[in-house]
Simulated scan of single mutants.
Amino acid sequence: MNKKVLRLEIFGFIFTCAIGTLMHFVFEWSENNPIVGLFCPINESVFEHLKMLFFPYLIWTFIEAIKLSQDKFNVYTAKLIGITSGMLITLAVFYISAGMFGRYFEVVNIASFFIGIMFAYIISYNIINYSKGKGLINGISFALLIIIAIIFIFFTLSPAHIPFFLDLKTQTYGITKQH
């Protein structure tokens, strides 16, 4: 067990939980600033809430990559697999509970966020801790993380009109509140 990696992953978990939770309110606090809305949830859609997990995790990924730059770890690969898994677990908990009970429970929505973050960091810790090497796979993983960030921005501006992007409270889509 690498204590340096473990410590970074624990701090990353706390950072992502705290910043992600705050992000839920930042768009409103910014008086609906569209630049803020590119990175923070702009409505109550499932898609928008994934930003609360993704962007703080991405910031921590860059911090961790700098902290571990002298080590030979596949940080970006571990983080790509971690965040992808974390978002999928968040969605699974959310949709399975909604399917089981026929409705959404706020406590389950909140729990799915923290469960997803926890799994993202557990998975990335194990990959970082037990893999060595830097190279092409790490570069590709870095590029894929940036592509995911661009996809979040794109779908904030141009959401597909499917339930995943629908604000259940206002029955609208996206930053421009399209019906």
Rank of each mutant, 00 (worst) to 15 (best):
P41A: 13
I42V: 11
N43I: 05
N43S: 14
N43K: 09
E44W: 09
E44C: 10
F47H: 11
F47M: 09
E48T: 00
H49N: 11
L50K: 00
L50W: 04
K51F: 08
K51C: 07
P56E: 05
P56S: 12
L58E: 08
L58P: 04
I59Q: 08
W60I: 12
W60H: 15
T61W: 04
F62T: 04
F62I: 10
I63S: 02
I63Y: 09
K67Q: 14
K67C: 07
D71H: 13
D71K: 13
K72H: 11
K72R: 07
Y76I: 11
T77Y: 13
A78M: 10
K79L: 13
S85F: 14
S85L: 10
V93K: 04
V93R: 06
F94I: 09
I96M: 02
I96W: 00
I96Q: 05
G99A: 02
G99V: 08
M100Q: 05
F101H: 13
G102A: 10
G102F: 08
R103I: 13
F105Y: 15
V107W: 10
N109W: 04
A111E: 06
S112E: 02
S112H: 13
F113N: 03
F114Y: 15
F114M: 04
G116I: 02
M118V: 15
M118A: 14
F119W: 06
A120Y: 02
A120G: 04
A120N: 10
I123A: 08
S124A: 11
N126T: 10
I127H: 10
Y130Q: 08
S131I: 12
